[in-house]
Write a protein that binds this DNA or RNA. Structure first.
Length: 482
RNA sequence: GCCCCCAUCGUCCAGCGGCCUCGGACGCCGGCCUUUCAAGCCGGAAACACGGGUUCGAAUCCCGUUGGGGGCACCA
């Protein structure tokens, strides 16, 4: 039997890193087994679902390099793969379940339900609704006729239990004393998540349900529905959740949680994907940087960790740097150039493109994120340079600063050829003549030229800036000091 | 309150009864390199939550405790 898995996000928010990881694991599992990966839209929550979020989810998945064989956008043999288009199907299943006695129309009022909850609390037992207010066929028919339809609940066999083997956690048992007769169809005739999701899994022939641990407690409900439909149960695999640095569930409070935010922050999709893959799964070796091919070849659910994992931004940064350094200079500048233009607020001229491309490799070997490029080349793209106050205060207040600036200006002005080598020779000569250390003598020059104490290598920076602008900036800084 | 899951360095992962005085990575600390910042290289500190079992032998198996997480809607 070919493996069929699905990722079924509800478009009620941006795709977050946890969802991205779940999608990735599903995808890796499918690819590993030569199976089918289905993308579904679990959009039964009409109130909170928006097209904007739907688009974000699609774009984020694509960015991560996760494609799907069936589902929304690409289609497939099962319709639109949107739950809002399948209401009739869910109603039909609910009706079948009522007919077979597996479900029933319920007459409990909110007050009665609340009372049960309170009583359970007092008795220190599980707050489960056991169907005591279920409607008889006549009562249900009467309410239907009166235009006051009751909700449909699943009749959970009591006493009883549901047990299953979770692929990542092993055997799990839920006593039905702790599973209540849950609503599957609202009184307005729309399906509840448990029904819609389970019916889809059955109809779409899903063989493995790989999802977050937060739904582990709902699994008996899904199994019960599946059995009531007379269908075989899929295998379940519940992934542990992602936590923030404080061990609490990852949330906005901990920083960015949306995949999109990482793209915007200058991370590479391959790095994010690698990081997510390694976060809770190991290829079985000591490798940390794992190619896509290797991931697919080695991925198995049995090797997925049961521990909740803390999303470690520092490690992601390191990994992103590794990927940045691994790409060609061409690829790097292709990705960086557009960001530089956005930062600049205009397109680069052909000359400017040339200088940025020439400078890019120097930044590539030390950057952790793509967004670091623009600030590093900014000084090359404007006639004037804005000097960071902090950098100025740090290096220009020394006794050596005026000497270095003046000496550098004179030495460079005398240069016949404006090249990296010539510049280095001139400045080193100045250093020797003035008796200055490289650190003391060059930092003022750096700040004057680039506006910051942190910049690409100085000689290259001067060469790229050009003779005229370099000398002007040196003079301007010297004047400001005088 | 009830139910479920989890428990190895600060963090992630390896370990699936002896090969473990626990291995790798990030981070951290120190050193080298060095024009800044990085990168790179070298070295270091750093963990089997606790208590009972089982066994010749336990980080590995079982039970309990403690701690953490998740779930208990006509949300998903």
């Amino acid at each position: 039997m070919t493996v069929r898995v699905r990722f079924a996000p509800s478009p009620t928010g941006y795709l977050h890193v946890g969802g991205g990881r779940t999608a990735l694991y599903n995808w890796l599992f499918a690819r590993h087994h030569g199976g089918v990966f289905v993308l579904r839209a679990d959009d039964t929550d009409i109130e909170r679902s928006t097209p904007e979020f739907q688009v974000d989810i699609l774009e984020s998945l694509e960015w991560l390099g996760i494609d799907w064989d069936e589902g929304i956008v690409v289609g497939g043999p099962h319709g639109t793969y949107r739950q809002t288009d399948r209401t009739a199907r869910y109603r039909a299943v609910a009706a079948d379940l009522v007919a077979s006695g597996a479900a029933y129309y319920d007459g409990a009022t909110p007050e009665q339900l609340e009372q049960i909850r309170v009583a359970a609390e007092a008795a220190e037992t599980s707050p489960v609704y056991d169907g005591r207010y279920r409607l008889s066929a006549e009562e249900a028919a009467a309410r239907l006729a009166a235009g006051n339809p009751p909700p449909v609940r699943l009749a959970v066999p009591r006493p009883g239990e549901t047990r299953f083997v979770d692929v990542v956690r092993g055997e799990i048992v839920f006593g039905h004393d702790n599973v209540d007769d849950f609503v599957i169809l609202r009184s307005d005739g729309t399906p509840i998540y448990h029904l819609a999701s389970t019916v889809d899994d059955v109809d779409y022939g899903i063989t493995h349900v790989i999802r977050g641990e937060d739904i582990l407690p709902s699994t008996p409900k899904h199994i019960l529905i599946t059995q009531a439909m007379g269908a075989p149960c899929p295998q379940y695999a519940h992934l542990s959740l992602l936590n923030g640095p404080d061990g609490k569930k990852l949330s906005k409070r901990h920083g960015d949680t949306a995949i999109r935010a990482y793209r915007d922050a200058g991370y590479l999709p391959a790095a994010v994907r690698n990081f997510l893959a390694i976060l809770g799964w190991s290829p079985g070796t000591d490798e940390e940087i794992v190619s896509l091919e290797t991931m697919i070849a080695r991925f198995e659910l049995g090797a997925v960790s049961r521990n909740p994992a803390v999303f470690d931004l520092a490690k992601l940064e390191w990994m992103n740097g590794q990927y940045l350094r691994a790409m060609s200079a061409q690829e790097f500048s292709d990705l960086a150039l557009p960001l530089v233009e956005t930062d600049l607020g205009r397109e680069l001229t052909a000359d400017e493109r040339g200088t940025v491309i020439a400078m890019a490799p120097l930044i590539q070997e030390r950057a952790k994120r793509l967004t670091e490029v623009a600030p590093q080349v900014r000084f090359l793209l404007n006639d004037e340079v804005t000097i960071e106050p902090g950098s100025w205060d740090k290096v220009m207040t020394t006794a050596e600063a005026p000497i270095a600036l003046a000496g550098a200006g004179a030495a460079l002005e005398a240069l016949a050829v404006w090249s990296v080598d010539a510049i280095e020779a001139a400045l080193r000569g100045m250093l020797a003549a003035a008796g200055l250390s490289a650190g003391k003598g060059l930092q003022p020059v750096r700040v004057a030229i680039t506006g910051s104490a942190v910049s690409p290598p100085l000689f290259e920076s001067l060469a790229a800036l050009g003779r005229e602008r370099s000398l002007a900036r040196l003079a301007a800084a010297a004047a400001r000091l005088a």
